[in-house]
Computed example of a mutant assay.
Amino acid sequence: MFDNEKLKLIRESERLKVKEVAKLVGLNYYSYHGYEAGKAKMSMDAGKKLFKHPRFRKYRDWFMFDEINPEIGQIAPILAHNGTEEKTQTKK
């Protein structure tokens, strides 16, 4: 799996749009879009911004090393929202 595919899986797992990810981590939209589209390689600085953000930190080991360790909070995107669907409750 290529880095751009992993970035897309992370974003989709978090149910975000490209623009939302870029804004959350402080990256230029067009730059981030290029990373995810496979048109540009993510720089080390951009990677640091992404994986230092609390929302994306849990994917760091999977992204970089293809390793997960749920006991310490390192997961793959497919596990991110497994069984945690939000339910809306209506008050009567």
Rank of each mutant, 00 (worst) to 15 (best):
G47H: 01
V21S: 09
K19W: 02
A76L: 00
S13E: 06
K8I: 12
M64V: 15
S31G: 06
G47Y: 00
V25Y: 05
E12M: 12
F51N: 03
G73A: 06
G26I: 05
A37D: 10
H81D: 11
L27S: 09
H81Y: 02
K41W: 00
I72A: 09
V18W: 00
L7M: 08
K92T: 07
A22V: 11
E12P: 00
R60H: 11
E14M: 11
H81S: 06
S43C: 07
K87R: 04
K58L: 07
I72P: 01
G26Y: 05
E67T: 14
S43Y: 02
R57E: 12
K17V: 12
F51I: 02
V18D: 10
V21F: 06
L79F: 10
K6M: 08
N28R: 02
S31Q: 13
A37R: 07
G38E: 04
K41T: 13
L27G: 07
Y35K: 03
K49V: 05
Y35A: 09
S43E: 08
Q74N: 12
I68Y: 03
G26T: 07
G73R: 05
V25N: 11
V25S: 08
E14H: 14
H81F: 01
S13D: 08
E86D: 06
K91G: 08
K41D: 14
S13L: 01
E71I: 04
Y29E: 11
Y35V: 11
P77N: 02
E36H: 01
T90R: 08
M44L: 14
L79M: 14
L9I: 01
Q74A: 13
Y59R: 13
N28C: 05
F63E: 14
E85K: 04
E20N: 11
I72L: 07
K6R: 15
K41R: 12
K52M: 06
K39Y: 05
Y35R: 03
L9K: 13
N4A: 05
K17A: 13
E12F: 00
A46W: 01
V21L: 08
G38L: 04
T84G: 06
F63G: 15
L27M: 10
E20S: 13
K91P: 01
R11L: 07
I78A: 10
I68N: 07
E67Q: 14
P77K: 02
Y29N: 12
G47K: 09
Y59E: 13
R55A: 12
